[in-house]
Amino acid sequence: MAVRDYIRQRFFPHLWCPGCGHGIVMNGLIRAIDHMAIPKNDIVMVSGIGCSSRITGYVDVHTLHTLHGRALAFAAGVKLSRPELRVIVPMGDGDALSIGGNHFIHAARRNMDITAIVMNNRIYGMTGGQFSPLSGSGTQASTAPFGNIDPAFDVVSLAKAAGAGFVARSTTYHVTEMIDLLKQAISHRGFSVVEILSQCPTYFGKHNGMESAVDMMENFRKNTKSLGKIPEGYSEDKVLRGVFVNENRPEYCQEYERIIASAMKGET
């Protein structure tokens, strides 16, 4: 199918700012779904609140636009109640890891077959440029007028430690890699996390000396490195991209089927 068959065309042009990376993530996600030929009726997309969460309005699948930080909790109900559906949860960095941090680690621990996408622009876009738990110390934001002293999470390490079966990272510059990682994440049987570095030129860029989306994507190009291309003794301070975890762990809904089977037999 063509890209336009996956979107709700009447809402285009969309509301994201010129150059906003969230549009590139949506673009890549649509390609991934299309390559995998998943029927639209089999997909439920659940989002929270934020610029990133607007994505559910645009993609023509079953869409659930929920509360700030709570998307994964709603998604757990959707998935466990109908495990045959594919559940995809795009979130902002504040959405996923600040207000939604508890749901994030528990979703990873449970390992329910849900694909979580962290659209990490390192800022609160929707509310106008306050720092997020991914901004990192030394950055500038509207609520850090003297510079940010809040250290950042490492999404990959966090997801890994919490037990996610699949953990990967890419950027909006590395689009073919992003599509490939999204496909792997969606096919993975378990909780998968794809962190995608995304640009918010309007706030993060403006506050931090990057005037345009192009500058910010150039930054992703220069300051990240693919895991597969790391030479021995590599010590440069670059953000790594690629697949960090890919392991099969017991999937929650399948485990629950076992519970049902023994409960029905009257075993305890």
Partner: peptide, 28 residues
């Protein structure tokens, strides 16, 4: 589970109410 239904203990009450909304939407 003994009647084929689903029970899940969530991480808190916020997640609990959200989860049942999700399950209601799939027809439960």
């Amino acid at each position: 589970p003994s009647i084929g239904g689903k029970y899940i203990q969530m991480e808190d009450e916020i997640a609990s109410v959200c989860a049942i909304v999700g399950a209601s939407l799939t027809g439960h």
